[in-house]
Amino acid sequence: MSSTQDAIREAAKNALASGRVDYFIGWTQGHTPSEAIPAFIRRPEEVDRLIWSPLCHHNLVTFLKRKMPDPPESRIGVCVKGCDSRTLVALLQEGLVDRERLYVVGIPCAGVIDKRLVDALFTDEVTEIDFEGDLVTARTRMGESKEFALADVLLDQCGGCYSPNPRYADELVGDTLPESQGKPQFPGLEEFEALDSAAKDALLAEAFSTCIRCFACINVCPVCYCWDQCVNRSRRPALVGQKVDTKENTLFQMVHMFHVAGRCPSCGACDRACPVQIPLYLLHRKMNKELYEMLGFMAGMDVDEKPVFQTFRIDDVLGE
C-alpha cells in the first residue's frame, strides 16, 4: 500500500515539476485520520500530502467535468481507481473531457471502506482508522476502539468488483490485481427485486421522502456533466417540480438515473455523498443490471466503444 502511495507521489511530483499539469488531484488525510478527502496539489514540494489507503473513496473524475476545473482550461493530473476510470472512459467516449489536458494515474484497487459501516459500530465520533494488513482498527474521540476485518467494512460493491484495474490511464502505479472472471455482480438488489411493484413503490417513496434536494448526488456524480444547468432545476421547461415532497423527489432521482444510464458504472459516489443516506445505489445499480442483462452493456469499459444509447442494432432485444 505504501509503495503505491510513494508511486502516486512520484508521479505527481514529476507531472508538476515538468509542467505537464497545472495541478494534480489525489487524496489526502481529512481533518481527522479517519477520513481521506480530495487533495489538489499545485507544487511539487506538496506531494507528500498525498496518501493512498482504503479510505480513498472519492471519485476524482468529478473534478474534471465541465465548470469544475479552475481555471477552466487547466491541465490536470488525476488519480483513478478501477471504477473511477470507467466514469472517465464514459466521459471520453462522448468527448466530454479533453484527453490532451489530462494526465491520468491509474491505481489498481482492492476495495475501499464504507465509512458509514464503521460509524454505525459506535455512538461516539470515529476519529481514527488504521490499517495493518487486512485488519482495521477504528478509534473514537473518547478513546473507544474496535478491530475488524477489512473485508467486513468494504463497500458492498467492492466484493465482487468486475474492474479492479483502471480501464484507462496514462500511467499505472501499484500491482495489477487479477481481473474478475465471470459475470459482473450487482449486489444488494435481491431484496428489492423480490418485492411486488406496490411494495417497490412504497420502498422508494419511503427512501425519497427524506431527500432534501441538496444536489450532492448530482454534483458529485462524475458523469452528470450538465450539472450546472440541470433539468431538475430548469424552469423553462419546468419538467421537475421544485416542491420538496416525495413525489417530486422521486421524479428528481429518476431523472438523474435515466440521464446517467449508459455512463454510470455504479461507482457509488452519489450514494456516499448523500447527507441523508438515501440508498441511491438501488436505482443506479438496478439500471445497470438491466442494461447488462438486456444489451450486454457495461458502462465505461473501453474508450473506443460507443455508449449504449448512441448505438442501435437491429438485433437488440429488449426484455423477454
Binding site: I37, R42, R213, C214, A216, D228
Partner: peptide, 29 residues
C-alpha cells in the same frame, strides 16, 4: 479562494444542514 474552492462540488448540502442558512427561491407551478 480559487484554491479552497477546487474541492467544492457546489452542491447545497452545507446550507441545507446548517442551522442558520436561510436563502430561498420562489416558484410558480
Amino acid at each position: 479562494w480559487h484554491d479552497l474552492a477546487l474541492r467544492c462540488i457546489s452542491c447545497g448540502t452545507c446550507t441545507y444542514v446548517c442551522p442558520s442558512c436561510y436563502c430561498f427561491n420562489i416558484n410558480d407551478e
